[in-house]
């Protein structure tokens, strides 16, 4: 049983990892610093640990999908991320792809029933 649980856990983690880029691009439509982004995603039902989120933000920034700068907010230095023009285009492409995939999955599920 625990073996199956571990397998299922791994599968769902893989699924989540694939969707995480899209979720982050959606979330930073409004500028966020790391911690507020994590909280924002958590409040919307997507818990991401910091060990995954921060490296991902840096990767997306190196791919020029995000931009960031240090700002002083509430008297504290914070690195604020926001979507770049390229990131906006990527977000639209991914959203379209997601809708198509979702539709295909719905078709497959309905076909199987």
């Amino acid at each position: 049983m625990s073996d199956n649980h571990a397998k299922f856990n791994k599968l769902t983690m893989e699924l989540r990892r694939g969707l995480l880029v899209m979720a982050v691009l959606e979330a930073v439509v409004t500028p966020h610093y790391g911690y507020s982004l994590r909280r924002h995603m958590e409040q919307n039902g997507l818990t991401v640990d910091e060990g995954t989120l921060y490296p991902l933000l840096r990767r997306l920034e190196s791919q020029e999908l995000l931009t960031s700068d240090w700002q002083v907010q509430e008297g504290r230095k914070r690195r604020v991320y926001q979507l770049s023009t390229l990131g906006e285009q990527a977000r639209e492409v991914m959203a379209r792809e997601w809708q198509q995939l979702n539709q295909a999955l719905t078709n497959l599920t309905e076909g199987a029933q």
């Binding site: 610093y33 790391g34 911690y35 507020s36 994590r38 909280r39 910091e50 921060y54 840096r58 240090w70 504290r76 230095k77 914070r78 690195r79």
Partner: peptide
């Protein structure tokens, strides 16, 4: 090249988590 930047961001995140 990333040392200070990453550490500053990590510290900022930890402080926010402590505050929360």
């Amino acid at each position: 090249q990333v040392r200070n930047d990453v550490a500053d961001e990590l510290l900022s995140d930890l402080i926010d988590e402590c505050d929360y």
